[in-house]
């Protein structure tokens, strides 16, 4: 089996007094594609933000590529090869498209630059057309491409996508899925959160379902697709 990129054990995360994550174990190995599922408000985003150390966890441990990062700052986690496409995109509106990409550029943990500005622009021709536009002037789909392109500029080993197709026109969503497949095939591990469960399970190796901050199912896509009871009960499909 390939290297463990990220390993969380017994994560408990709170927002103020509300106990959101209730003891999560979560592991990602190199090249793996994982679907993170669950209805709204079940804690998917909170889990991602805990893995990235954007919110502190009260209990539990986090290791990134074998290094303890339980108390590390977010930039240190990112620099161990993890990139993030957040819910709501988070482009820098006051930077141009080019600046959004260039500011993130960094070689991978093993020192390679697979993704350069040229390659990103070849992958997202629409961004090439709008290179000098301000980030705020882009359409929703273009903003999403920019966020994904920007994440790739960090040459990650793991890309975490939180609702990357949310609010996009169907044709644009198809385009985003095509890109996600391309990223997966390039060998980058991905964690995907998306409302479109069949699109998720079509490309994932493994899936995790969260209910109220606990994992209620974990298994390969083939198994999940055959478990209509679980799909119905926890995802409302």
């Amino acid at each position: 089996m390939s290297e463990v990129l990220l390993e969380a054990r017994g994560l408990h995360t709170y927002y103020g007094a509300s106990h959101i994550l209730r003891g999560i174990d979560f592991t990602v190995r190199g090249g793996e594609t994982i679907g993170l599922m669950g209805r709204n408000g079940m804690g998917k985003t909170t889990l991602i933000r805990s893995l990235l150390r954007l919110v502190p966890s009260r209990h539990g441990e986090l290791h990134v590529r074998g290094r303890a990062m339980t108390d590390a700052p977010p930039h240190a986690v990112a620099r161990r090869g993890i990139a993030y496409v957040p819910e709501g995109r988070g482009i820098f509106p006051n930077l141009s498209v080019r600046e959004n990409l260039v500011m993130a550029a960094r070689p991978s943990v093993d020192g390679k630059r697979h993704w350069t500005l040229e390659r990103i622009l070849a992958t997202f021709p629409r961004l090439a057309e709008r290179l000098h536009h301000g980030g705020a002037q882009l359409s929703g789909g273009e903003q999403q491409m920019l966020t994904i392109g920007r994440a790739l500029m960090t040459n990650p080993d793991l890309l975490i996508l939180d609702e990357a197709t949310e609010g996009l026109a169907p044709l644009i969503a198809v385009e985003i899925w095509r890109i996600i497949r391309q990223i997966r095939e390039s060998g980058i591990a991905t964690v995907i959160v998306d409302k479109n469960h069949s699109a998720v399970t079509a490309i994932t190796d493994r899936n995790v379902i969260l209910v109220k901050g606990s994992i209620v199912f974990e298994g390969p896509s083939t198994e999940l697709r055959s478990r209509s009871d679980i799909l119905h009960k926890h995802l409302g499909v």
Partner: peptide
């Protein structure tokens, strides 16, 4: 400039 508008996002890009 990026950190000025979205500090968290800049951090999670490794800044």
């Amino acid at each position: 400039r990026a950190g000025n508008t979205n500090r968290e996002m800049a951090q999670s890009l490794g800044v």
